[in-house]
Design a protein around this nucleic acid. Structure first.
Lengths: 189, 189
DNA sequence: AGGAGCGGTCAACGCCCGTAGAATCAACCC
DNA sequence: GGGTTGATTCTACGGGCGTTGACCGCTCCT
């Protein structure tokens, strides 16, 4: 009645546990923000002990960093109309599948210095990229307003509980935002 | 050489101290948010003892409530163009003199349940009022997007350090936002 | 003038947090 | 198969927080 082979090797077990902790951390950070998410809560959600989390990630800070690093932003370019459509497509995408890492950073940026830096830097990169794609003297202001609009939609949906922005079909929202984006991506003729 | 009359009566002293605490609380809550603002810090900024703050306001919760209650929102109405202009004027106003109470609520809403409720309720009221002023079937979606834009601008300016939104003259920003607001306040003909 | 009442201070309690280090047990290597 | 390593848990420490209640001194009423 012996169990000659363990289900998972030690390395596999380690990877699985680490992944479970990272998933729980991302979810809880996105739900409650950095400060209100305790290591004990993350450990509980991942069904391990808090000490193990520290042992694997060294500190809460480092865990947050690991749990919130997302992929690079998709570049935009082309004619102003094309740029506008690409941004609208990004909005539609974020309306459907919600980027947990971004939400975690957004929710934590007001209480955690590291998240704040990450958010500021990420937003700045996005703005710079937008600015390059807009042919106008005041491209930087326009890019900032576009970014502000995207952020405002995300904040309203997730933090201010604008249910109408959750229930309305993405296409309808996109259609309403299209004139805004078009006017912001193209200087008046 | 006696000082027969005190500079301030006891009641005046009391009011002055309370006002000093409320002002310090509002400023610190707006700067650092509910959680990261300690009663000891507020007391220090107001040059009193932490125990006195508790004695006057009962709890941190109650102090926050007292420090962040702002005046009622200004109503909007008229033709879609007029509504758009009124909203633009509100944005311009908030760009110049920053409403501390609103900022405190905005910064605290992610960490404090009371602030979250206040923000959600305040935003809902504003949306409802906007919605009434917009003659369109999807007025509620349009109102939500307008609110989201205003919030996005505030968040970008204050939390994401969009310097360009601080340095650019309000009129220029308003001019760029005008087409957005006009398209959102008026259904396509 | 003198006692009551209020503005204000001080020290302490209890809680929860991040973190550290010893202890336990099973998997791995030779 | 026995020592070793690594995964995991347990217990505890130190610090900061909101909150409390005893205490002091000045001001007000009579």
């Amino acid at each position: 009645m012996s169990e000659p082979r363990p289900r998972l090797s030690r390395a596999e077990q380690r990877r699985a546990t680490e992944a479970r902790i990272l998933a729980a951390a991302g979810r809880l950070f996105a739900e409650s923000g950095y400060d209100q998410t305790t290591i004990r809560a993350i450990a509980g959600a991942a069904e391990v002990d808090g000490g193990l989390v520290m042992h694997y990630f060294g500190s809460k800070e480092e865990l947050f960093h690991r749990a919130t690093q997302a992929g690079p932003v998709r570049p935009v370019g082309g004619t102003p109309e094309e740029v506008a459509e690409q941004i609208l497509a990004q909005i539609a995408d974020s309306l459907v599948n919600e980027p947990i890492a971004s939400l975690a950073v957004l929710r934590s940026m007001l209480t955690h210095a590291g998240a704040s830096e990450a958010a500021i830097e990420g937003a700045a990169r996005y703005r710079a990229q937008l600015s390059d794609a807009i042919p106008a003297d005041d491209a930087d202001v326009r890019a900032a307003l576009i970014s502000a609009t995207l952020i405002g939609v995300a904040v309203s949906r997730h933090f201010l509980k604008f249910d109408v922005l959750r229930d309305t079909p993405p296409e309808q929202i996109i259609d309403l935002l299209r004139p805004c984006l078009r006017s912001l991506t193209r200087a008046d003729d």
